[in-house]
Computed example of a mutant assay.
Amino acid sequence: MQYACANCGIEMEYHEAGYLFLHNEKRLNLPLTGSVDKTEEGLYVLPYDNLDEVYGKLSEIETVLVEEEWTCSFNCSEKPGPFRPAEEFLQLIKYREMVKLIQGGQFTSHLQPIIDLSDFSLFGYESLLRSNSGHNRINPGELFEAASRTGFHSMLDQKARKSAIESRQGQVEPGTKSFINFLPSTIYNPEFCLRHTFKIVNECNVDPKDLVFEVVETEKIEDVEHLRSVLDVYKREGMKVALDDVGSGFATVEMLSLLQPDYVKIDRSFINHCDSDEDNQEFLREVMKIAGELDILVLAEGIERKEELLFCKEIGIHYAQGYFIGKPQEEAMEPFEETLFV
C-alpha cells in the first residue's frame, strides 16, 4: 500500500516482507544478531518476513537508533527505499493500521444537536469524527494521537472536515449550522491548505454560512497570529468560526478582539453545576460581559443536567449542547419540543 505524506508529498510503500535497511552517517556498529549483512558504506541489511518482526527488532535497539541518529528504510528488493529517521520510522510501523485507515478515508460523522436557548429550537449540530471500518472501531482520540506521531495529522484533519461537510447531505436542512472541528497546527498555509475544504463545500452545494469551523484545544494555541490568518480565510469565504473550550486564559477582551470569532464555546468544567457553583457563575457572567461588548455569540457545551441548562438560559447564554440535550448519533434528530427542557 502507498500513501502520501500529508505535509511534503513524499511517498512510502509498506512491504509485508522484504529487507530492512539501517544507515548511519558515522558508520557506527549496531548490536544486532541473526541474519544481517553490513556493507562497506555502513549500511545494515536485514531480511524480514512480516512487519511485526521489523518493529520488534527495531524496538529492542530504539534508544541506540535514536540517540545515534540512524535512519531506516525497507523494500521488497535489496534496494532501499526512502530513508526516514529511526524514531519516525518506528511510529509508522507501529501505527500502520491507523495510517491505512487515514489514507483510505474510512470515516463518518456523528451529529450532536445544539439548541437555541431563547426558544429551545434546533440550531445546529457538532460533527464528531468516527471511523467507518466495519468491526474495527477506533477511538477518535487515539486516531488523532497516532496521526500526530506519524505526521498524518494534516491529512486526518482534512479528511475529518470532508466527512463533516458530506454528512449534511440528505439529513441536515439548509439554514441549520454544522460545527466542524479543526486543528490550526495542521494548516500551514491557509490559502493553500484550505482549498480542498472549500472545493468539498462547493461540490456538496452547501451554503458557506451554514458552516462553523471550530478551533479545538484553544488554550494550547501558541501562534495567535497564525490562528487569526486561518480564521480570516474561513470568514472571507463566508463561513463562521468558533473558539472551543474557552477558559480564563482566552476569555479576555484583548484575545477575543484580536481573533474576532463569531462564537465561543465554554468548556464543560465551567458549566458543571453552574447552577450552584459560585466560581463558575462568576466566570460565565464575565464571559457574557466580554462577548456582549464584542458581539460574539456564546455556546455552553457539556450540559448534562436540566438545572445547568436553565441557569445558562437565565444569564443569557445563546446556545447549548450536551448529553442532556442529545448524544452524538449517526442520523440527525427529530425537531425538539420546548417541553423537553422546562
Rank of each mutant, 00 (worst) to 15 (best):
D295C: 10
E60F: 14
I138L: 11
P190T: 04
A146G: 03
L299G: 03
S148E: 12
I271R: 03
E282K: 13
I138R: 06
H15Y: 05
V230F: 05
V36Q: 02
E314I: 05
R27S: 13
L122M: 12
V64S: 13
E88R: 14
E314C: 06
L243A: 03
A86C: 02
D262T: 09
H226A: 10
A86F: 01
V215M: 06
H15M: 00
A300W: 04
M288L: 15
D119C: 10
Q91H: 14
H226N: 12
K159R: 13
E225Y: 14
T150V: 10
I296C: 05
C312K: 03
G134P: 11
N272R: 14
E191I: 09
R168G: 13
E219F: 09
M98F: 05
G302N: 04
Q158P: 00
T108C: 12
F192Q: 13
A4L: 15
V216N: 05
L129W: 03
H318E: 10
F83K: 07
P208F: 04
L92S: 00
G316W: 13
M239I: 06
R305F: 09
L156Y: 06
F120T: 01
S178Q: 14
I61R: 04
S276C: 10
K289M: 15
I325S: 03
K159H: 11
G322C: 08
F283R: 02
L46V: 15
Q171H: 05
Y19M: 00
M333C: 12
E282Y: 12
P208I: 04
C274Y: 04
N181E: 11
L117K: 05
N7E: 03
N24M: 01
F89Q: 01
M288K: 11
C193T: 10
S154I: 04
D262G: 12
W70T: 01
S248M: 14
G316C: 13
Q103V: 07
R228V: 03
I187N: 01
S131R: 09
Q281A: 08
L122N: 01
D37N: 10
L258V: 10
K26H: 14
P335T: 07
S148A: 14
K235M: 07
D157V: 05
E304H: 06
N24R: 01
E88Y: 08
F270N: 06
Y234V: 09
Y323N: 12
V224S: 08
Q281C: 06
L156M: 08
E307S: 11
I114H: 03
Y234L: 05
F192S: 07
M255Q: 09
H153E: 15
T218A: 09
D267P: 10
P85R: 13
S276L: 08
E330W: 08
I296T: 07
F152I: 01
D157S: 12
P190Y: 06
